[in-house]
Amino acid sequence: MSTRATPSPKDLIHTAIWHEVPEPDNPFAARAAYCRGYDVYGAMAGHARWIEMLWLLLRSELPAGPELDVLEALAVALANPGPRDGAVHAAMCGGVGGSTAASSLMAALAVGAGRSGGAREVHDAMAMWRRCGADLDAWRAHHAAAADEPVDVWPEQAHIPGFDPHGVSTPLPVRQLLAALDRLGAGPQTAWLHASVEQARAAAGLPLAMCGVAACVFGDLGFSPDEGEMLYLLLRLPGAAAHALEQKAVGFKQFPFYKLELDPAATPPVPAPLIAEKEAA
């Protein structure tokens, strides 16, 4: 990965990411392709890690520190949010219904893109980190200011981005991941959050969520909120794909449904004639 090529100023496609040299007998086929100057097929394939390729697509140089190991560890943790996650469940619905692969993945992207545990929440949390740093009082002020802003359609449950609005205590996987990333040397934000996770929970009034860990680490790695949002969408797709394929294979009769807990006080009574008909049957 030491040989680099310099793009020609006559290139018609203006990108600093990718450069191709065409075959002499076919201008539509590449004889060589370079990512940030590295020969993808002649040098990277068979030698570079996938995480290095991912990094180079977003950055002009490979890092000299632990950043690649940190990003790879985070990618492992995010790869499969599990069938309880809304994005994965959406892909499973696509799979069991016979949808195409693209449709299942688009369903996962759509459901996993929002501000409730999705990629946009990661974007918002990263913006908060940039503005407030490790100042818990600044977090509260940022949250209060955001709560006063008008919403476009439906008001969402207000909470500091990166924290679980339905949780009570910080889940063990969240604490384990935070500890592992801190141990790898993710950066100062991650180290502070690992040491102060309970203080952060008290300040937010809610426990830290997995998307909050991702936002913190993406910020430490130098990614922008837009890049973090895109990475969060991308890194969670493998699990959605795997569960969609599994459900397509086993069929709808084994599709997992979740028990609905109904509030008796909010459930309208069954009309007496229907009860009589049911008993007679």
Results as ranks from 00 to 15, higher is better:
114 G>L: 03
63 P>M: 07
105 L>P: 00
93 C>P: 01
139 W>K: 11
50 W>P: 04
131 R>E: 15
93 C>D: 01
53 M>R: 12
82 G>K: 08
68 L>R: 04
111 V>Q: 05
51 I>K: 10
87 A>Q: 08
133 G>K: 13
116 S>C: 01
63 P>E: 00
140 R>I: 07
49 R>A: 12
117 G>M: 08
108 A>T: 00
72 E>G: 00
67 E>Q: 12
102 A>S: 11
78 L>V: 09
148 D>T: 15
119 A>F: 05
147 A>M: 06
50 W>V: 15
96 V>C: 03
86 G>W: 03
114 G>P: 09
88 V>L: 04
109 L>F: 10
96 V>P: 02
118 G>I: 01
140 R>C: 11
130 R>F: 03
63 P>K: 10
128 M>G: 14
139 W>H: 11
62 L>T: 10
128 M>S: 11
109 L>R: 08
111 V>H: 01
66 P>F: 04
88 V>I: 10
84 R>W: 01
110 A>I: 00
72 E>Q: 11
151 V>E: 03
86 G>D: 12
97 G>C: 13
114 G>Y: 07
56 L>T: 13
136 L>C: 06
128 M>F: 03
56 L>Y: 08
124 D>W: 07
86 G>E: 13
126 M>L: 12
83 P>G: 10
107 A>G: 10
99 S>A: 15
95 G>E: 07
124 D>Y: 10
69 D>A: 15
108 A>I: 01
139 W>A: 07
77 A>K: 02
121 E>H: 10
82 G>D: 05
52 E>R: 06
122 V>W: 02
129 W>K: 07
54 L>I: 11
85 D>S: 10
102 A>T: 13
151 V>Y: 13
149 E>D: 06
99 S>C: 14
108 A>S: 14
74 L>H: 04
139 W>F: 12
124 D>R: 09
87 A>W: 02
150 P>N: 09
132 C>A: 15
131 R>G: 00
84 R>K: 12
91 A>M: 09
80 N>S: 15
146 A>S: 11
85 D>Q: 06
62 L>S: 12
112 G>M: 09
129 W>A: 04
84 R>Q: 14
85 D>V: 05
145 A>V: 03
79 A>P: 00
130 R>H: 13
77 A>N: 02
64 A>Y: 00
114 G>K: 04
56 L>S: 05
63 P>H: 05
145 A>W: 03
122 V>H: 02
102 A>F: 08
96 V>A: 06
129 W>D: 02
65 G>F: 01
66 P>K: 04
115 R>Y: 04
147 A>E: 10
144 A>M: 10
56 L>Q: 07
135 D>P: 05
121 E>Y: 14
96 V>K: 04
141 A>W: 06
51 I>R: 13
70 V>F: 08
136 L>Y: 11
54 L>E: 07
105 L>F: 03
115 R>E: 11
60 S>I: 01
50 W>F: 14
85 D>I: 01
100 T>K: 01
88 V>Y: 02
127 A>S: 14
87 A>F: 02
152 D>L: 12
138 A>K: 15
104 S>M: 06
68 L>C: 01
94 G>D: 06
